[in-house]
Amino acid sequence: MKPSEIKKLIIGSTDGETDTGSIASILEGEGVSFDFKNGFTEKVTDRIFAGTLSLKREVDFTRSLSFVFYRIAITGIAAIVILMISIFVMQDSFSFNSFLGLGDGYAESIVYLITGN
C-alpha cells in the first residue's frame, strides 16, 4: 500500500461516520500491528505470583533517583567550585577555618564574646 493510501486511512479514521473496524484490519494487514515482546505474559504472571512487585518498584525508584542525581550533581559541583574560589579570594587560604568562615584569632574572639573581656 502506498504512503498516500495509508495517510487517507488515517484521515478517514477521524471521520465520526466511518466504520473504523475495517481500517484497523487493513492496517494490521499492512504490518501496523502492535504487541509486547516475547515472554510478556510470563513476566506479568511472575511479577504477580512470585511476589517481585516491590522489588521492581524499588528498581524504578533507583533509576529515577540516579537520573535526577546526575542532573543535580553537575550543578552541585559547579557551585562547590565557585564557593572554593570565593573562599580563596576572600581568605587567601584553603584552611579549615576559612571553610568555616572563621578568621585568625578564633579562640580570643570566642572568649571575648563569652566573657566580654
Partner: peptide, 24 residues
C-alpha cells in the same frame, strides 16, 4: 507513518484517534 501521525497529535486527540484507528 501511523506512528508519526499519532505522535504528532496532542494526547487528548491522540487517544481518540488511536482507539478508532488501531482498535477499530
Amino acid at each position: 507513518i501511523v506512528n508519526k501521525a499519532l505522535m504528532s497529535l496532542d494526547p487528548r486527540f491522540r487517544i481518540i484517534v488511536a482507539m478508532r484507528l488501531l482498535q477499530g
